[in-house]
């Protein structure tokens, strides 16, 4: 199988260049379906084989961190999902679009692999419908995959991000739970997204609160928004000081917060932000020439992304008809 090596804290890890199991995220598909569409668009452009398995259920990571799904249940759900991945003929590399999926299913896998008796317990339950977790599933985050394909993607690019300044925000559940596995090596100053931006000619911005959480807090964004607003304001203020054209994120939860809260925060704090928010896959698809509405799905954004897209579309590097 084709793969490439990407640096992590100590040494490097292998990122497969093909054969993906598209591990969908409920929040992403609910709030930003355009990210799914963009990822499909990218996979097709790259000629990568991937599986979209209707049988895959939610990873339940949101519920787990929102304190409503016991650990035992969480682990067993994952054992079932892993068995689906293992049963794939070739597309065995799970690609999570959401950092919480990534963190959660990786934590479950570690648990199942570390405690044989827990694995047995989970397997006993899923054996009732003929499934078994063997311990072979491999888990990656989609940003790592895009980073791994960067050279080919650059060649495929229709537009360049030349002259555009992009602030990035990495998902805490990607960088902080499995901190030794963060692609490009540093969890305290992650730059996978910046590398993606720079690959297309843009500039990744350094702002003071770069590693601060978006304030999601799971239960907080549902019912205790004072927390979310307060953290978010700090984050956005610091970001705004560097005058970004775009905020690039990695996570549906962060996208929800950083995009949706800008307007209420303007009302509350009297400060205008108006920073368009896109996900890594959306930006990549956009640069590859995808349709902003039909593929990138910008209609699901609260802050208007169109001004940014217009800036990008001025930087045409290749004459390619837009693909719908």
């Amino acid at each position: 199988m084709k793969q490439t090596r990407v640096p992590i804290l100590h040494g490097d890890k292998e990122i497969p260049l093909d054969n993906y199991y598209f591990f969908r995220s409920c929040i992403m598909s609910t709030l930003f379906p355009g990210v799914d569409c963009s990822l499909r668009f990218i996979f097709e452009k790259l000629g990568c084989s991937y599986t979209e398995d209707p049988k895959q259920t939610c990873c339940s990571g949101f519920n787990y961190h929102a304190d409503i799904i016991p650990w035992e249940t969480n682990v067993t759900i994952q054992a079932r999902n892993f068995s689906l991945i293992e049963n794939e003929e070739k597309n065995k590399n799970a690609i999570c679009v959401c950092p919480t999926s990534y963190g959660n299913i990786k934590e479950c896998q570690e648990h199942l692999d570390h405690y044989p008796e827990e694995k047995e317990k989970a397997n006993k339950i899923i054996a009732k419908f003929g499934k078994e977790y063997k311990g072979e599933a491999k888990i990656y985050h989609a940003t790592e995959v895009i980073y791994a394909h960067r050279e080919k993607l650059k060649k495929l690019a229709t537009y360049s991000l030349d002259g555009l300044k992009v602030a990035t925000h990495h998902g805490c559940h990607y960088t902080k739970i499995f901190y030794s596995d963060v692609a490009t090596g540093d969890w305290e100053y992650p730059i996978v997204l910046d590398k993606i931006v720079e690959n297309f000619g843009g500039e990744g911005l350094d702002y003071n609160e770069k590693t601060l959480c978006c304030g999601m807090g799971f239960r907080h964004t549902l019912i205790n928004r004072d927390y979310t607003r307060t953290v978010m304001l700090r984050k956005l203020k610091s970001m705004k000081a560097t005058k970004p054209d775009l905020l690039l994120v990695q996570c549906p939860g962060c996208s929800l917060n950083l995009d949706y809260y800008q307007k209420p925060l303007t009302k509350l704090a009297g400060e205008e932000f108006n920073i368009p928010v896109l996900n890594y896959a959306q930006l990549t698809a956009l640069v590859l020439g995808a349709d902003p509405v039909k593929v990138v799905g910008i209609k699901t954004h609260n802050v208007d992304v169109m001004p940014f897209i217009e800036k990008v579309q001025k930087n045409k590097v290749k004459e390619v008809a837009q693909v719908g």
Binding site: H65, C172, K176, I177, W187, T211, C213, G215, N224
Partner: peptide, 12 residues
């Protein structure tokens, strides 16, 4: 205990 935002910065 309900005030934690589950960002795991402490753990990292």
């Amino acid at each position: 205990i309900w005030e934690c935002g589950q960002c795991y910065t402490c753990m990292s």
